[in-house]
Amino acid sequence: MNAISSYLGSDHTRCDDFFIQAETNVSNGAWEQAEVSLAQFTEALERHFTMEEKVMFPEFEQATGSSAGPTAVMRMEHQQLRSIVALMRDALAARDAESYLGHSETLNTMMQQHNMKEESILYLMADRVLSGRQEEIISAMTSIDAPA
Rank of each mutant, 00 (worst) to 15 (best):
M1H: 14
M1N: 10
N2G: 02
A3F: 11
S5K: 00
S5V: 04
S5Y: 04
L8W: 00
G9T: 09
S10K: 15
H12M: 09
H12N: 07
T13S: 14
D17W: 09
F18A: 11
F19G: 02
Q21H: 08
A22V: 06
E23L: 07
E23D: 08
N25P: 02
N28I: 00
Q33W: 03
Q33R: 09
Q33K: 15
Q33E: 14
A34R: 05
A34C: 03
V36W: 03
S37Y: 09
S37L: 02
A39G: 10
A39T: 14
T42D: 07
E43N: 03
L45A: 15
E46R: 10
T50H: 10
M51V: 01
E52M: 06
V55P: 02
M56Q: 01
F57C: 07
E59R: 13
F60H: 10
E61K: 03
Q62C: 06
A63K: 12
A63Y: 06
A63E: 05
A63R: 12
T64D: 05
T64A: 06
S66L: 12
S66H: 10
S67H: 06
A68N: 09
T71L: 06
A72W: 01
A72K: 12
V73I: 14
R75Y: 05
E77C: 02
Q79M: 06
Q79E: 15
Q79K: 15
Q80D: 10
L81A: 15
S83A: 15
S83L: 05
I84V: 15
I84K: 03
I84F: 01
V85K: 09
A86Y: 00
A86W: 01
D90N: 13
A91R: 00
A91C: 04
L92T: 06
A93R: 11
A94E: 15
R95C: 02
D96C: 05
E98C: 01
Y100A: 09
L101F: 12
S104M: 08
S104L: 09
T106L: 14
N108F: 06
T109S: 13
Q112V: 09
Q113V: 15
Q113T: 13
H114E: 11
N115A: 13
M116P: 00
L122M: 15
L124Y: 01
M125L: 14
M125A: 11
M125G: 00
D127Y: 02
D127T: 05
R128P: 03
L130Y: 07
S131V: 06
G132Y: 08
R133T: 08
R133D: 08
R133M: 09
Q134D: 10
Q134P: 04
I137N: 09
S139P: 05
S139L: 04
A140C: 02
M141F: 05
I144T: 07
I144C: 14
I144P: 04
I144M: 13
A146W: 01
A148K: 10
A148R: 08
